[in-house]
C-alpha cells in the first residue's frame, strides 16, 4: 500500500468514526432542540424563579383539556377525573387522573406527558406530577393521581385551549436496576 493510499484510508476511516459519533450526537441534540422549541409537546418542570415571575391577569381565561391513554401492553384503565378546566394563566391548579390496575398481578407504570398545540408546551409547567416517578399498582388497586401545574402568564395571545395528554407505559418487564432509575426519566420529560 503506498503512502498516499494509506493517508486516504486513514482520513476516510476518520470520517466514518466521526459520522458514527454524529449519529449518536443527534440524540442529545434532538432533546435540546425539543426543549428549546417545545416540539413534541415536551412540558417543563416549574421552579421558584418561574413561579415568582408570573403576572396574573384575572380577566384572562384559558381552557385546559385532559386526556389519558394507556399503551397497549399496560393492563390498566386510566382517565382524567375531569375532562376540562378553566384556568387563569399564572395561577397554580391541581387536576386528578384515576388509574386502576385490572390485572391480577402488580404492575409498574410510567406516564409520559405531552401538550398540544406544540407552541403551548413550553408555557406549561408542572410542580407536582405522578409522572415524575414510576407508579406501582397492586392487583385491582385504584389510585387517584394528582398533577399540579401552571400555565405561564406569558402564554401567547391566541392560544385559548391546551390539551394535556398522558400515555401510561408498562415498565414492569424492565430489569430491577432500571426500576430504581425511574427518577431520571422525568428530567427528560
Amino acid at each position: 500500500m503506498d503512502v498516499n493510499t494509506k493517508k486516504t484510508l486513514k482520513k476516510c476511516l476518520m470520517v466514518v468514526v466521526l459520522m458514527g459519533g454524529f449519529g449518536y450526537a443527534l440524540v442529545p441534540l434532538y432533546d435540546v432542540i425539543c426543549d428549546i422549541t417545545g416540539l413534541n409537546g415536551k412540558t417543563g418542570v416549574a421552579n421558584e424563579q418561574i413561579l415568582a415571575r408570573q403576572v396574573v391577569d384575572e380577566t384572562r381565561r384559558v381552557t385546559v383539556q385532559f386526556d389519558g391513554t394507556v399503551n397497549s401492553d399496560l393492563p390498566w384503565s386510566f382517565r382524567p377525573a375531569k375532562f376540562s378546566m378553566e384556568v387563569i394563566p399564572g395561577k397554580m391548579y391541581t387536576a386528578e387522573y384515576i388509574a386502576q390496575n385490572v390485572a391480577s398481578k402488580e404492575v409498574i407504570g410510567q406516564a409520559v406527558p405531552s401538550v398540544a398545540p406544540n407552541e403551548a408546551s413550553i408555557y406549561f409547567d408542572k410542580t407536582e406530577c405522578f409522572c415524575f416517578t414510576q407508579q406501582l399498582l397492586k392487583p385491582g388497586e385504584s389510585k387517584n393521581m394528582p398533577v399540579t401545574f401552571i400555565v405561564r402568564s406569558d402564554l401567547p395571545e391566541g392560544i385559548d385551549v391546551l390539551t394535556l395528554s398522558y400515555t401510561f407505559f408498562n415498565r414492569s418487564n424492565m430489569t430491577a436496576d432500571e426500576k430504581t432509575q425511574g427518577s431520571d426519566v422525568h428530567e427528560k420529560i
Binding site: Q110, F169, K188
Partner: peptide, 22 residues
C-alpha cells in the same frame, strides 16, 4: 433496555425517523 426510541423511558420514536432519514 435502553430507551432511545421508547417513550416510557424518556425516548422518542420520532428521533429514529430523524436519524434514519439523515
Amino acid at each position: 433496555g435502553t430507551s432511545f426510541f421508547n417513550a416510557a423511558g424518556g425516548g422518542d420514536p420520532v428521533l429514529f425517523q430523524h436519524i434514519f432519514w439523515f
